[in-house]
């Protein structure tokens, strides 16, 4: 098994109100078969041994599905590798002697909690504003009552694959949440079950998104490039269209 010696430039910040700074750490003898988060585990183990506070970072499932891990590696959320989360990144992608910059997801709507940990509760509030289908438990008709064309079901799935990690926001030069919001709206708006609340959903989610202080989409598509689930920016186009239609219908509603 081969090993790497690396230099880490890591954002350290004690809490939400304190000033942060970049600190430099030497990461010696890192096995190439370790994952990126295991590399940080190893560094943390040494920091603890030396009586220092370990680097805090969010992580949980470590298999690319929970959306918890949230770091920007060399300026790119989840690293430059396509279609993966940070926890799926392995050290064999790096070279001996590399310097790696590790920073939190940057967006004013995602305030830093500590070190690399950020608060993404804005996403929850956007979902609460309309990212659902109102169906009371027990009131559903038989699952086969409404056939859904396979193409619609597949399109809905493509959007529903979003893991809510926030990389789209972190990569966007404007910290826009449009890919996240559009993915949820597109998932539900593609399905006949979601049709009834479509207009209200789109209007309310976009209003909440704006209220949270995210920036605006300038169609640069950095979001889809870093999305670990490779969700397409075409969902943003659909959201724009649905929003325009919903606004028009709201304006002329009887």
């Amino acid at each position: 098994m081969s090993h790497l010696n690396l230099t880490l430039k890591v954002w350290r910040q004690d809490n939400a109100t304190s000033e942060g700074r970049i600190e430099t750490y030497e990461a010696k003898e890192i096995p190439t078969s370790a994952s990126f988060l295991e590399m940080i585990d190893i560094v943390n183990e040494r920091l603890i041994r030396d009586g220092e506070e370990p680097i805090h970072f969010d992580h949980d499932c470590r298999e690319g599905i929970c959306g918890m891990c949230s770091m920007t590696i060399n300026g790119i959320p989840h690293s430059k590798e396509r279609g993966i989360t940070t926890c799926q990144l392995h050290m064999r992608k790096f070279k001996d002697g590399d310097t790696i910059w590790i920073e939190p997801f940057r967006a004013n709507a995602f305030p830093v909690v500590k070190d690399l940990v950020v608060d993404r509760s804005a996403f929850d509030r956007i979902i609460a504003a309309g990212g659902y289908i109102s169906v009371r438990t027990g009131s559903a008709p038989d699952a086969h009552a409404i056939p859904v064309p396979k193409s619609d079901a597949d399109a809905a799935f493509d959007a529903a694959a979003c893991i809510g990690c926030g990389a789209c926001v972190a990569a966007c030069k404007n910290a826009s949440a449009m890919l996240f919001v559009s993915a949820k709206a597109s998932h539900l708006n593609h399905l006949p079950q979601g049709e009834v609340e479509k207009d209200q959903r789109v209007l309310n989610m976009v209003r909440q998104m704006d209220a949270e202080g995210f920036g605006n989409c300038t169609n640069q598509f950095e979001c889809e490039a870093v999305c670990p689930k490779e969700i397409s920016a075409q969902h943003i186009a659909k959201l724009n269209r649905d929003y325009l239609a919903a606004s028009a219908r709201e304006a002329v509603a009887p």
Binding site: Y132, I133, G138, P147, K150, H187
Partner: peptide
Amino acid sequence: TEIIDQCVAQGVPFAREYGGLL
């Protein structure tokens, strides 16, 4: 059986056949 009904109504995109059924 009720779970499947509930989840479909919520918009869970289960795999479907070309006829539109699950």
